[in-house]
Design a protein around this nucleic acid. Sequence first.
DNA 1: CTGAAAGCGCTTACAG
DNA 2: CTGAAAGCGCTTACAG
Lengths: 330, 330
Amino acid sequence: MNPTIRDVAKRANVSVATVSRILNGLDGYSDETKQRVLQTIDEIGYQPNAIARSLYNKRTQTIGVLFPNLTNDFSSAIISGIEDYANDHDYSILVCNGMRTRRYLQLLREKQVDGVIFCSYLLTEEYKQALDAMKVPVILVASISDYASIPYVKVDDKRAAYDATAYLIRKGHREIAMIAGNEDDPIAGIPRVEGYKKALFEHGIPYGEEKIVYGDFSFESGLIAMDALLNGGASFTAIFAASDEMAIGALNRATERGMRIPDDLSIIGYDNLRVSNMVVPSLTTVNQPLCDIGITAAEKLIHMMKNGRLAESTIMEHSIVERQTVKSLC
Amino acid sequence: MNPTIRDVAKRANVSVATVSRILNGLDGYSDETKQRVLQTIDEIGYQPNAIARSLYNKRTQTIGVLFPNLTNDFSSAIISGIEDYANDHDYSILVCNGMRTRRYLQLLREKQVDGVIFCSYLLTEEYKQALDAMKVPVILVASISDYASIPYVKVDDKRAAYDATAYLIRKGHREIAMIAGNEDDPIAGIPRVEGYKKALFEHGIPYGEEKIVYGDFSFESGLIAMDALLNGGASFTAIFAASDEMAIGALNRATERGMRIPDDLSIIGYDNLRVSNMVVPSLTTVNQPLCDIGITAAEKLIHMMKNGRLAESTIMEHSIVERQTVKSLC
DNA sequence: CTGAAAGCGCTTACAG
DNA sequence: CTGAAAGCGCTTACAG
């Protein structure tokens, strides 16, 4: 058995209350007692049991973090930001990966996490209720909700898409296709299409339905989307893809089909994943500050846990990262 | 306050012992009592408190997982394998990311995790002692140790490097350079160099020191290594890189310097990260079954936690994934 | 079939 | 400055 606070108390000839006070930096003991207790702790290698402490305190210093999919740069950059900030502030993170959301929510409740970060999920009514029942603060990352009680941290998708499209226009392109995400995705699907359309409109460029193709953000869907675009007969000199993975899929397929990037076709992506800098030619894209998004989410959550007050949502700054896949036509 | 087992007991007119028995599927109650209790639980929305349970049981159903760096495909594929298996077997994972190892180990001990998975770390004497003090099973992933008490799950690095080099030889290459990992890394550095040398030796190809350059497994170091190789004046028709990231770095720099891959130079990588399939041309590489490695590690650990017996180490199968960066000279 | 009680390892009023 | 005691929310012998 690992030694407990009682073992320390006995050996040092004090009460457990005194040991506890010393451990927690409260006062109520002589310096001599303190020294003796500290030495005893060292001698028997005592470590406090956080489970027992949590039971009394009703705080576990643990944050539950949910991702639909961890195996991509996007998620891992965010999670590493969260973990970093949390750890610096004495919280650990319980990671949940995958679509067993209902089950996870119950698990997090049973394990008494102090707060929850929900990443890239659409918050359904059911989840909202489960979260309410837990009575702990929640933050949404890369997602939004209609509930005022749940702040979010994300980039302005519509504006970022607008800026990406406007960037292509500024480079002299007027025939611009788009590889969009899921058509019904209210977070990263629809708003990016809206931003694209708005940029075209404001620059007096007619929008053509044949210039837009939908994927699911994945590399594979970028491959397929590129084929669809090329076979569809639309004419375009540039593509805005709603994710780097799709942009790189498009890059691959276009290259396979004999096109030269950016000479024959310009491509701009979205996310600025590490891989966007590893492909040849390196991908021009929209940067999302993923690590910062994670940090900000953790910061907000911890703030809410500490004062019990609601935090504000935050829109993080995006930016265009110019690399080699966009050719200037001017 | 969330309702407790006492609230259920009172409302259902039974003792907490009975509620507990029903909750845990033990026997000792009439069917009628059971129905009444279950209904009460439902009515007041009772959820058991896992912290209280853990305090008594001395089991938290939690596994600590440590990574030096989470923000890469390698780590995230492994962690997702671990999480998947663990969750299926009623364990959650507490994720630690970064080099604050000592601090993490103490944290995991205080939080009473039931087991630890240590990924891509060299197990120092200090960590070993901390782990011993925790008295819980430990598994090493993508690493080894001299301690019989700590089983590992990994690929045979030397053999995999041998096979990669032999593959190039089989394709007719005789002048083969290597971009190695850290020169002093006993896990992924030295053994891969040994495998490379062994393959050359067994095929009667003289080894030349000028043909080997050391990086640190990162993309950036691959860039630099390629320059070093090209400027060093060694002659070679193929490169074996000890990581996909370095291979892709080499691919980038070679392309920048006007070489055509694989026509002017063949490259084989190591890891089979998702990105290896996204670059153009797609990278021929050594596959490590990362997700399976994670699953196997979790399986072994849970097994050890359940029976208290030591598990055996496992060498996972690697394989060569043929894509487009190696040209046959035969 | 059921309950009272002790105990898991802490923390915090309360009393002295 | 210090300790005895109650309590956090469970589980499990033990007794009936």
